[in-house]
Design a protein around this nucleic acid. Sequence first.
DNA 1: TTCAAATTGTACTACCTGTATAAAAATATA
DNA 2: TATATTTTTATACAGGTAGTACAATTTGAA
Lengths: 303, 303
Amino acid sequence: MYNRKQNVIKMAHQLFIEKGFQATSIQDILDYSGISKGTFYNYFSSKSELLIAIYKTIYKKLEKDRNDLLLGQDPANIEIFMKQLEMQMISNRKNKLIILYEEVMSTNDVDLKQYVQRTRLGSLRWYYGRFIDIFGEDKKPYLLDCAIMFQGLLQHNLQYNRMANKSSEKINQVIRYSVGRLVKMVNEVSGSGEQLHEPELLEKWLPGCQKNDFGFKNQLLHHSVTLRKAITKNIHDEGEQEKYIELLEFIQDELLHTSMPRKFLIESTLSTLKGSAVCEKEHRQLEELVDTYFKQTEERETT
Amino acid sequence: MYNRKQNVIKMAHQLFIEKGFQATSIQDILDYSGISKGTFYNYFSSKSELLIAIYKTIYKKLEKDRNDLLLGQDPANIEIFMKQLEMQMISNRKNKLIILYEEVMSTNDVDLKQYVQRTRLGSLRWYYGRFIDIFGEDKKPYLLDCAIMFQGLLQHNLQYNRMANKSSEKINQVIRYSVGRLVKMVNEVSGSGEQLHEPELLEKWLPGCQKNDFGFKNQLLHHSVTLRKAITKNIHDEGEQEKYIELLEFIQDELLHTSMPRKFLIESTLSTLKGSAVCEKEHRQLEELVDTYFKQTEERETT
DNA sequence: TTCAAATTGTACTACCTGTATAAAAATATA
DNA sequence: TATATTTTTATACAGGTAGTACAATTTGAA
């Protein structure tokens, strides 16, 4: 049962926030969520996999919220960027993500480590993309460096600010200060022409091809949101509705969060989705987007 | 036997570097260093305490090397600062300190966590002190902020640089680039007068009073080095020599690495040390330094 | 009602940390 | 050298964890 599993994820997350990942034993989770050991191992192959499931649910929401803030706004507007940052930092704090990250790096679990590493790189890529929006294409060669430094700078500022004002943190203030430094830094390095890392490295680290192309991601999210709205509006059978939305989410996930999206699966899912017969225009656009995506990927692979 | 214990520390460090802290069981350490369980628990009360012992030996060497680089040099010379950084980064890499740090944050061991936290703050304080040397007293209000940001910025630059050039890292280049950013940042924030954190926070976080005063630390180290030289030169009995050096090291350690140095202990040790009857001038200076230290501490405590 | 799938309880293996203790070995002392 | 003291060892033990196996039970859908 899907809800049951979801409930375990929720309960475990609570425990992890309270006691930490390592300190929470599987037995604790069993007691707290009221399931048996057998069921647990039916859901997850290990505690690590459960943690990944928690991460995924948090990130799904975070990415959605983050993109909602951008919806209909000028991507070059740095105030929007700061709002996005604040939203993410509050989410991180609430879910104690940073602490859970650090904990994870200790485990032996290779998959888990890799997952966290990819998430960090994903965050870096997001900064890089947004910096292009904000500072312009011509600054591109310096923007990976700036993303790297900004990530570190902001993290430290937040961490020590938290230590300084335990009760009343001023996340907003810290973000504004950090972004202030960032702006100067971008101007400075682009002015003097100093570069430490090639932005091409990002594609090497995160071989997701077009995923690095912000246009693709934005388009995908846009179509996805529109289709979802159409589905919830036009399909009244609840079961059907849920089914289509799940299909949509699967496509989105496969394209954005898999290193090698499976073409045949996506195409098959798309044709099933077509059966819903809603919002044909957006549907066609989505198909076209997927098409060009795979065309470009194939080109890339043969070179 | 001291050597035996030291050997265990060495062997365990090797294992931790190879397999990680968590992944190394106590049994592994016993097998690898050829001692029995009883002996292990005679030396250390837990694996965590062993790790702290490892940290301490590494840091003792690191601090010494770091101060040797400064010996007889102009503290305002930024090239020296970069040399110190490079030395530390190479040591960190060699000993895999960063990774071991991250691992530690996961354990339940409160003492261990606290120790690592204090070490990080110690590093921050060191940056702060050096920045005062380099950029001048008048920039003081902005230098804690800059230390915080520099710590994060440098760490991230190094981390991603390592990822980019797995085989041939360019630590020197990364440091030069990062310090370049730092210099501009200091000028910028001091020019615009933006401040995020009060430097006084450092004393709140690391209640070591004068330890934050670089003058004190430098003087102490200076006297210590001079006295040590005099002892090795003038005392020929090896046992005596070792005894006096141990006393000296105890005083240094108590003053620099304890949150509440014990006055009576230090004074007693000093008077024993006096018995060596070497280098009376430096001896008197050391006594005076300790005296003013405790006078200031008491003043501070009564306000 | 029937049947398959999910869930439970229980027992089990294998590993871990840390404690206890008597015997053996090394070291110091007389 | 002989004796006393400390250190080390081997071993067994208690109490905890992750994960497996499997028969018995419950659940949910046809």
